[in-house]
Nucleic acid binder design. Structure first.
Lengths: 333, 333
DNA sequence: CTGAAAGCGCTTACAG
DNA sequence: CTGAAAGCGCTTACAG
């Protein structure tokens, strides 16, 4: 049987209150008493029952992180940074994957095992701001990723329009004119796609290049296979781009594969850029030019926002924080 | 304020016991009573407090999964499958990453927030079987990955020696003779590396090809950068392989990159095979021939072993389960 | 600086 | 089929 606070108290000849004070590092315990209690704790190998503590305090020391898919490299890398950032607050992270399904996202927003977590960091795909605002759970939630709406909750993202504009401008500066955009989405959920398309259009306009809708290829999902399929379809339709702005890196990796199959060389015939700076793009052939969002900063800001909401007396309007990004110029463009 | 069992009981005019019976789906509640209680539950939007339930039952409905790194694609894909398999048992999965550090692995084995979880699925890198056997925590643990030792706990793995033998034999069958092995490790932790090297040697011996230790390249880690570095070093040392058996896919992807830099074509000049069947290898140029462990089966078997240990009256010697694998033949070899 | 006691919200023998 | 009550292991006013 595991030892309880009470066992320690009896053996040390003090009250449970005193043991609790020692365990929680409160001041005002006489040094001799503290030493005696600590000795007994070591002797009995006592460890506090976290469940009981949670029942009492209402805090669990666990936060949840919900992302669409763990095997999308961008999210896997983000998870890693959130786990690291949370460790600085002594939090354990419970990971949830929604698959981007509205039902699953609703469950997450309404509190998956909600008494088990202190707060939620959530990267939704399907849910609108209005739906998010209506959530049943009252625990703090920090949203990750691009949104066109404002205010359902604290929110961290990079400036997608600016980033898309910059990487498109890079293509233009290197002499490309027939730049295709890969990854457009019509769904209400496609805020990232819409913002990246906006940045792309802004860059074209700034260079006085006419926007040609035939050069925009849709992709409902942003996996490698979707990128490859979108490019094949684009080429089959007779479009001859000299550059591709893919809305994320996995699309770009799939796109490069499809170009290769068609005998098109990257970057000689077609330059390719992505978005996310995932590890794969640093070792692909050719290596991938991309937008690198500061994932470490995104994770840190999200965890800090949660910490702020969890602090006593927290209130105030939802925060909108912008994390940094930079261009990572490699071989593909 | 959140509603409690007691609130439901009072409003429905029954005892808390009856409400508890309804909530937990026990029989022997009169239909009218059940209906009335359910109506009140809906009306008050009552949801049981999981922390209190845990304190009482000793079960939390959460299992932990500890892997070295989440942004290694193999583990990311495995995590996904474990989360899916756990959902079938109504378990939530708490993810932990150890970085393969002995200290962190010891903490995991000894029970990270151990009262918060019912059991642990653990893919250790640094800890030996003896250390694992000495763990302080008494909750069930299922080990994942290759081990040379037996018995510290339930264990699921694929037959690494056989898989390595088969993929090496494939290289030999396609006419390769100067086959290098990339990813050897000397550390006590390198069970995967040792077993894959054994399979490689067995295949060479079966084909009467002399084993040449100069064709074995070490890699302390198995990331893309390590694969690239190992190949550069091998080529610089004057070795001229006509094939590479890389001990995992990320090594192989890095290796292909290094070959490309040196002007060597894959598979024309050098055939390359990997191990793991990660998504990247299906879209790399060229696509990667590899060993595909059945990750879904690994995850399912691990979760089922945990379920068995958690069932009443569980006992018996540790189980050693083998999950399936197959060769995935693509362009690189 | 320390103690006795209530209570967090459940589940479950024990009685009826 | 249902109820009254104990107890899981903590924390924390309240007293001293």
């Amino acid at each position: 049987m595991r030892n309880r606070l009470k066992d320690v108290a009896e053996r040390a000849g003090v009250s449970v209150k005193t043991v609790s004070n020692v365990v929680n590092g409160y001041a005002h315990v006489r040094p001799e008493t503290r030493a005696r209690v600590e000795a007994v704790i070591a002797e009995l190998n006592y460890r506090p029952n976290l469940t009981a503590r949670s029942l009492r305090t209402g805090r669990t020391g666990v936060i949840a992180l919900a992302v669409p898919e763990l095997d999308i490299p961008y999210f896997a890398e983000l998870v890693r940074h959130v786990v690291d950032a949370a460790a600085a607050h002594d939090w354990t992270v419970l990971i949830d994957q929604t698959g981007g399904s509205p039902d699953r996202e609703r469950i997450v927003a309404d509190g998956i095992r909600d008494q088990l977590i202190d707060g939620l960091i959530f990267s939704p795909l399907a849910l609108t701001g209005a739906e998010l605002a209506r959530r049943a759970d009252t625990r703090p939630m920090v949203l990750l990723g691009e949104r066109d709406d404002h205010g359902p909750a604290d929110h961290v993202a990079v400036d997608n329009v600016a980033a898309a504009r910059e990487i498109t401008a890079h293509l233009i500066a290197s002499g490309r004119r027939r730049i295709a955009a890969i990854g457009a989405q019509r769904a209400t959920s496609g805020a990232s796609a819409r913002m990246r398309l906006t940045g792309y259009k802004e860059a074209l306009a700034a260079a006085r290049i006419r926007f040609d809708p035939r050069r925009v290829a849709a992709a409902a999902n942003w996996h490698r296979a979707d990128g490859a399929a979108a490019v094949r379809k684009l080429l089959d339709s007779g479009v001859r781009p000299d550059a591709l702005f893919c809305f994320n890196d996995t699309l770009a990796l799939g796109a490069m594969r499809a170009l290769h199959e068609r005998g098109l060389r990257v970057p000689d015939d077609v330059a390719v850029v992505g978005f996310d700076d995932i590890e794969d793009g640093r070792f692909s052939t050719p290596t991938l030019t991309t937008v690198a969002p500061d994932k470490e900063e995104i994770a840190r800001l999200a965890v800090e926002l949660l910490a702020k909401r969890l602090a006593p007396g927290a209130d105030g309007a939802p925060a909108e924080l912008t994390a940094g990004h930079r261009l990572e110029l490699r071989e593909s463009a």
